[in-house]
Design a protein around this nucleic acid. Structure first.
Lengths: 110, 110
DNA sequence: TATTTATATTGCAATATTACGATATAGTAA
DNA sequence: TTACTATATCGTAATATTGCAATATAAATA
């Protein structure tokens, strides 16, 4: 026990969970908000911005990248990070579906 | 170490992380999708729907409720669960802000 | 009151996450 | 080549999450 039973859920449910889980940490929300503000930056900029060490920031960036929420391009000896719109597009579709459901059933709660 | 440094981030960032973290598990995505479909149901219905035990489902429901994504109302000896629109409204606002940023800076990535 | 039904809580094992110091890697510049 | 800069990875400790059997709680019913 302890491991998530991913095989028992649909691919769509697992994919969405990976995306939302990646956003489920204040440091990663802060990274996304910073990237939205500056458009693109290198890891060191985020280390200066956040109260976390370089390895910790690097790890958070890796998780956001693996989830498909950011992209990283090599630029000289640094790596330029920016938002990956594809990931956010997928989340957007999910919340749009939720919105449609909620509008239909407004205040029909128990 | 190991504990998230919540105090170093803004209230807004922490609040958003709590909401997205609650959605960051396929079982909880499945519960939300089921609630959207049936509008309202009791815990036992979800236990029958998901490949998880009753205590595990109960725990996931607790997390969704604590995050503000679902509501639970006592109805006899059962508890009727449904979507809490307030929580989803907060997430919606966040993604709307992201959308605005992305539209402005389309394809200006590194 | 005793039983059934519905859900929550407790306790625990397995696993995952968070964080960082130390170190490795790789490009730049002197 | 040597030093510098930027980032990733390794190793590890602290903590959190996931899942369930067993049990507790609480309302409904016989």
């Amino acid at each position: 026990m302890g491991a998530t039973k991913s095989d028992h859920f649909t691919d769509k449910q697992n994919e969405l969970a990976i995306l939302t889980k990646a956003l489920g940490h204040p440091a990663r929300i802060a990274i996304i908000e910073y990237l939205l503000k500056v458009n693109a930056c290198i890891c060191g900029d985020i280390v200066n911005e956040l109260p976390l060490s370089q390895p910790t920031v690097s790890q958070h960036l890796k998780e956001l990248k693996n989830a498909g929420l950011i992209k990283g391009n090599i630029e000289g000896n640094a790596i330029c990070y920016c938002i990956n719109e594809t990931g956010f597009e997928k989340i957007k579709v999910f919340f749009k579906e939720i919105d449609l459901h909620l509008e239909k059933r407004k205040n029909e709660c128990c």
